[in-house]
Every structure is written in structure tokens, then in C-alpha cells.
């Protein structure tokens, strides 16, 4: 059967070969290796030694920094992503109302997403929210005491959430595309029935947009769980101050490359996969209740 498949699709398979080689060599093999390593003690230089589930046990039951990194990451994801999507939707909604120079605005709002998780932006953020930063100048107008927001343990994470929200460009573009897909006649008939713009928003726009919302929620949550650069730069490479920006991925990195505990880091990577898969799975289950695929 396999032979038949080969004869029938020889050329197609050959064209796909580079991709297959890529995914096997750079994807599947390292993943299997890391699954194996997650059950070992591995300092990178000497052969790994098998320790069974001990990495996972330490992680879940006796590593307070691991718990802290989970806490930080959950706050980042579950506060940051909804705010970011709300921002993206609001702007897409306004732009879709027929603003002059739509293409220009769309491009401008998209720029932060392009700059995205870069080192330059993270450094810029440190400047903006530092003691002598612009943010202090702005809030001082409202009588807020100047503060170094990035180095205060109680506000550092908040500056990272602002950074995430600021990068609303790519979900916004997707929302815009979705809004354009909604048939005009739905709005027309609603107008004839005397619906106001709020009613139209909640009864037509949002229900029709649920597949897009769903897509954006899933993608942004997965992305936010994997955020690394902002915490690495803004948290001074250690997730500081006081572990307040210790993202999951940053802690994983510290374990792997600062403390040479590659086995433990591999276990953390697999745990992250489980966490992301769980939340994505829950979202898909819930989708049946609220995502509307037309007709």
C-alpha cells in the first residue's frame, strides 16, 4: 500500500521532502530527545543519568520558583491576552466604520506587532517605564508619584502586560478582515427592523465574528505562554526584581543554560506543552457553546 502511495505521488512527495527532512531533523528528533532527557539528570557535558519521574516531582512539589513562574505566566496570559484582544477588536471596529486613510492607520497600528518581541523594544520599554522615563512625565500630570515601574516588584509585570497589549496589530488585522466578511444585508435588514448600533454590535457583529475571536484567542494564548524576550531583557536576565517577571520560559532558560540542569529544563518544556495543550483543549471544548460557524 505504501509502495502504491509512493508510485502515485512520487513527485509530490519529493517536493515535500525538504519539509519532511526539516520537521524530522529539527522537530521530531529533538522532541523525542528532550522527552528522554526529561527523565534524566543531564548537565550537558556528561552522559545523562536516568532518574525517572524525579524531575517532575521536584517541579510540582518542592520548587517554589517553579510555582512562582507559573503564577507570573498565568497573570500575564489571562490578564494580558483579553486586554490585548479587546484593544484589537475596538480599533478594528472603529477602523471598519469607514475611517479615511484606513490603509495608513492599519499599517501604523501593525508596526508594533512587527517590532514585536525584539530586544530593541524591550530596551525601549525599560527606558519608558524607568525613573526618568516618559511614563512618569505623563502620569505626573495626574498627580501620580514618579516611580521606577520596571524595577518595582509590584509593577514590573504590569509593564510587560502593557507591552503585550501594545502589540495588538496582528489580531487587529485579522479582526478587520473578519469584519469585512460580514454580509452588509444583515445590517440593512436589522436597520429596517429598527435596531440601534449597540444591538447590531451584540446581535450581528460579535456572533458573526466568533470564529475569528476564537482563532485569535487560541493563537494569542499560545503565544503569550511562550513569551520570553521581554522578561529576559526587562527582568535583567533573572526575572527580577524579586522574581516578579520570572516567566515560565525564562525560568526554563535559567535552569538549562545558567544552572546546567538540562534534564529539569526538558521536563519543564514538556510540562509547558501539557499546560498549553490543556488550555487549548478546554477552549476547543467550550467553542461548541459559543462559536458560531454560520447557518
Amino acid at each position: 500500500m505504501l509502495l502504491k502511495l509512493w508510485h502515485k505521488n512520487k513527485i509530490a512527495l519529493l517536493f515535500l521532502a525538504p519539509w519532511f527532512i526539516g520537521i524530522i531533523v529539527l522537530g521530531i528528533v529533538p522532541m523525542i530527545a528532550s522527552l528522554y532527557l526529561s527523565f534524566t539528570n543531564y548537565n550537558m557535558f556528561q552522559a545523562p543519568t536516568w532518574v525517572g519521574l524525579s524531575n517532575y516531582q521536584t517541579m510540582l512539589f518542592s520548587d517554589s520558583r517553579f510555582i512562582q513562574s507559573l503564577k507570573v505566566t498565568f497573570i500575564y496570559v489571562f490578564v494580558g491576552v483579553p486586554l490585548q484582544l479587546l484593544m484589537a477588536f475596538t480599533l478594528a471596529y472603529i477602523l471598519n466604520k469607514g475611517v479615511k486613510g484606513l490603509a495608513g492607520f492599519r499599517a501604523i497600528y501593525y508596526v508594533p506587532s512587527l517590532l514585536g518581541p525584539s530586544i530593541a523594544i524591550a530596551i525601549l520599554w525599560r527606558q519608558i517605564f524607568g525613573t526618568n522615563g516618559v511614563f512618569n512625565d505623563v502620569v505626573s500630570i495626574f498627580g501620580v508619584q514618579p516611580n521606577s515601574w520596571v524595577s518595582d516588584p509590584s509593577t514590573a509585570l504590569f509593564t510587560l502586560i502593557v507591552l503585550l497589549v501594545w502589540q495588538f496589530g496582528s489580531p487587529m488585522v485579522i479582526f478587520l478582515a473578519g469584519l469585512k466578511q460580514i454580509p452588509e444585508d444583515l445590517y440593512e435588514s436589522a436597520s429596517i427592523d429598527g435596531a440601534g448600533s449597540l444591538t447590531k454590535l451584540f446581535k450581528i457583529t460579535i456572533p458573526m465574528l466568533t470564529p475569528i475571536i476564537f482563532f485569535n484567542v487560541v493563537m494569542q494564548i499560545i503565544g503569550a505562554f511562550q513569551a520570553f524576550t521581554p522578561a529576559y531583557i526587562i527582568g535583567g536576565e533573572r526575572g527580577g526584581p524579586l522574581d516578579s517577571t520570572l516567566f515560565y520560559t525564562l525560568y526554563l532558560y535559567i535552569k538549562a543554560f545558567t544552572e546546567f540542569q538540562m534534564g529539569y529544563a526538558s521536563a519543564m518544556a514538556w510540562m509547558l506543552l501539557v499546560i498549553i495543550a490543556t488550555f487549548t483543549g478546554l477552549l476547543f471544548l467550550s467553542a461548541k457553546k459559543w462559536v458560531f460557524y454560520g447557518e
Binding site: G130, T131, S148, V150, S151, I233, E237, G240, P241
Partner: peptide
Amino acid sequence: SAQVSAEYSG
């Protein structure tokens, strides 16, 4: 203060 030190770290 710790906060100033943190701001200058790195």
C-alpha cells in the same frame, strides 16, 4: 535602594 539597583542591573 533595591529598586534603583534593580533599574540599573544589566
